[in-house]
Amino acid sequence: MTGYNLTHLKQLEAESIFILREVAAEFERPVMMYSIGKDSAVMLQLAIKAFYPAKPPFPLLHVDTTWKFRDMIRFRDEYIRDELGLDLIVHTNEQGVKDGVTPFTHGSKNYTNIMKTDGLKQALAKGRFDAAFGGARRDEEKSRAKERVYSFRDRNHTWEPKNQRPELWNLYNGSINEGESIRVFPLSNWTELDVWQYIHLEKIPIVPLYYAAMRPIVKRNGTLIMVDDERMQLEDGEQPEMKMVRFRTLGCYPLSGAEESTATTLPEIIQEMLLTRHSERQGRLIDYDQSGSMEAKKREGYF
C-alpha cells in the first residue's frame, strides 16, 4: 500500500464519525441508544472520537427492562456513568413492571414488545428526541441489509420498508416534520468481525459476559440460559450447573443463549467467532418467534 491509503477499519471509523457529526449538527435533540453491548461500545468510542476534546453533545439512553444481566448494569453505572462521566438516561416501562410483565409470564414476543419497544417509544417521546443513534449493523440479519443509515420513523415510530428515502453519497436527508424522527445507524457498514477487530485494536472495555467464565446455567429447549438472579423460575427437574460459557450477544438474561466456550481473551473470542458455524443472532430467542420475525418487529419500532 502507498502512503495515502486508509485501512478498512479506518475508513469505517471515518464514515461513522461523519454520520455522528452530521446528526449532531443538523438535529435539535439527538440521543444515543446505549444497549451496553459490544456494538454500543464501538458506537460510543466513535462518538468520543468525533467530538474530542468535547464530550459527545447528546445523552445516552438505556431502556432498562429490569431483566438485563447484573454485569451489564454494573458496567453501565460504574464505567459509563461514573468513570467516563457521560450523560446517561435510564428508562423503564413502569406500567409494564406494574402489570407484572416478565419474559416468563408473557412470552418473549409480548414481553419484548412491552418492555423494550414500548419502553423505547416512551423514552423517545419523553425526551422529545428527534434523532436516535442505534448500533444495528446491516450484516446482522437479512431484513437489515436494506435499512438506510438515516431511517425515517413516523409519529408512531414505525418503519415502512417500501417508503424509504433514497440515500445518495454521504448526503443524508434529515428533513422531518414535528413529531417525526430519524433512527441513525452509524455502524451500518460494519460486520461482526469489524466490530471485534476494532474493540481489539482500540482496547475498548466491554462487559465481562463476552468472555468465558464459570456461570450457573440451565438448558432449556436446547438453549443455555444463565441463572443470573433469584427471579429465574426453574422448571421441574432443572438444576443450575456451573458451565464455562460466554455470550455472543447480550440482552435480557432469560432470553440470551450462552455458548460453551473457553475464550477468555479478545483474540480467543475472535478466533472462536471465525471458526464457529452459527450466526450471531442465533443466540437471541426473539428472532425465532415467527418467520420474517425481525422485519415484523422493526415495523413496530423495535431496533
Binding site: 500500500m1 491509503n5 486508509l6 485501512t7 478498512h8 477499519l9 475508513q11 469505517l12 461482526e192 468481525l193 477487530q197 481489539h200 485494536l201 483474540p267 480467543e268 475472535i270 478466533q271 467467532m273 471465525l274 471458526l275 464457529t276 450466526s279
Partner: peptide, 24 residues
Amino acid sequence: MSHQSELISTDIDAYLAQHERKEL
C-alpha cells in the same frame, strides 16, 4: 464466517495483524 484461513486456528494474533491492513 470469514474466508477459511489456516492462521485462524494456528496463530490468531498473526491473522488479526493481517486483517488490520485490509482495504475496503
